[in-house]
Amino acid sequence: MTTSQFDRLAQVYEDSAAMPFRQGLEFPTVLHHLGDLADSAVLDFGCGSGVYSRLLARGGARRVVGYDVSEGMIEHARRREEADGLGVEYATGEFPKDLEGAFDLVLGVYVLPHATSYEGLVAMGRTMAAALRPGGRLLTLPIHPDVHPDPEYYAAYGFGLSVSERADTAPVDFGFSVGEQSARFTARYWTAATLDEALREAGFAAPEWRRHVVADTAEPGPTDGFWAPYLDRPHAAILEARKV
């Protein structure tokens, strides 16, 4: 991941947390699969502006560390921590050696799509594995291998993405708008077989695929047809894997 794509986007990422899609589906899905965080040390790998780091801290995690290569994102996250006082730690630059083996759980939301080569994908996985204690758990959200090809398919949920081809490292053009602000960046597509192979090579057992969850409080409601197209063809996969 290059810092140039993200250093200036912290506020729009922060504001995106209020999107109905994130509030009604994405956040509930991630928190559901994380489960009880009590007494857990959690690394938010690729934490961006710290949205998930703060959710983890408020969810009862014993220790939360947010890590991101974007100095601009980390600066924003640290300013929020000064205001919120949740006890979240933040780090940037080369992954700190003193964080290796320190965590029960690593959360990596939309980070694997920023690896631009197979070697980079494995290296990212190895860094996350190194952060975990033996048997520790990874929950990560890459681009779903079966993502819908129509760039407008996800427009109702506040974002659009275009995949040039269904091949490893194929560029994925992703954009979203929040009010009058917008963000656009390039990610990478990975097949299911390659994601499986890379995580195994990085030091994890075979990943298990999890389902999406719509919150009971979502607007529109969880039984409304609004969510059906997304649940049928989600743009993000949810993979859970244990360090071996």
Rank of each mutant, 00 (worst) to 15 (best):
G72Y: 12
R137F: 12
D44V: 07
P96N: 00
A170C: 07
M73I: 10
D44F: 00
G203E: 05
L9N: 08
R54T: 11
D98Y: 14
L105H: 03
R58K: 14
V51T: 14
V111K: 10
A131Q: 05
P229A: 02
A170P: 10
E26A: 02
R184M: 11
T3Y: 09
H144M: 03
A18I: 08
Y230E: 11
G135T: 01
A41K: 09
F174D: 00
R22E: 14
P222A: 14
P96G: 05
S16T: 07
G203Q: 04
G24F: 01
A155H: 12
I143D: 07
T29D: 00
L239V: 12
S40R: 15
E100H: 12
R126K: 15
F6G: 02
G108S: 15
D104Y: 06
A241C: 12
C47F: 00
G125C: 07
L132V: 05
D36F: 05
L34S: 00
R8V: 03
A170S: 15
Y110P: 01
M19P: 06
S182K: 14
A205K: 09
A83W: 14
L37V: 07
T127D: 06
Y157K: 12
R166W: 13
L231C: 04
H212N: 01
G179W: 09
V178M: 09
F27P: 00
V106G: 03
V64I: 04
R184Q: 15
A236L: 15
Y67D: 02
Y13I: 02
F21E: 02
A129M: 08
D44N: 13
V172S: 12
A167G: 14
Y157N: 04
H76F: 12
G46H: 04
A130P: 09
V88Y: 01
V42K: 07
H114I: 01
G203D: 06
E219N: 09
S162K: 15
G50L: 06
R58D: 11
T116M: 09
L99V: 02
V172R: 11
G125A: 08
P220G: 02
D98R: 15
V64L: 12
A241N: 07
V30C: 09
D173W: 13
L112A: 03
A115T: 01
R22G: 11
R133A: 02
Q23P: 11
R133K: 15
A215T: 02
W227R: 04
F176P: 03
L141Y: 08
Y154A: 06
A193F: 09
E82S: 13
S117G: 06
F176S: 06
L112S: 00
E75P: 08
R8I: 05
S162G: 11
Y90S: 08
L195C: 03
S49I: 08
A10H: 07
T186S: 09
R22I: 09
E201P: 06
D44S: 06
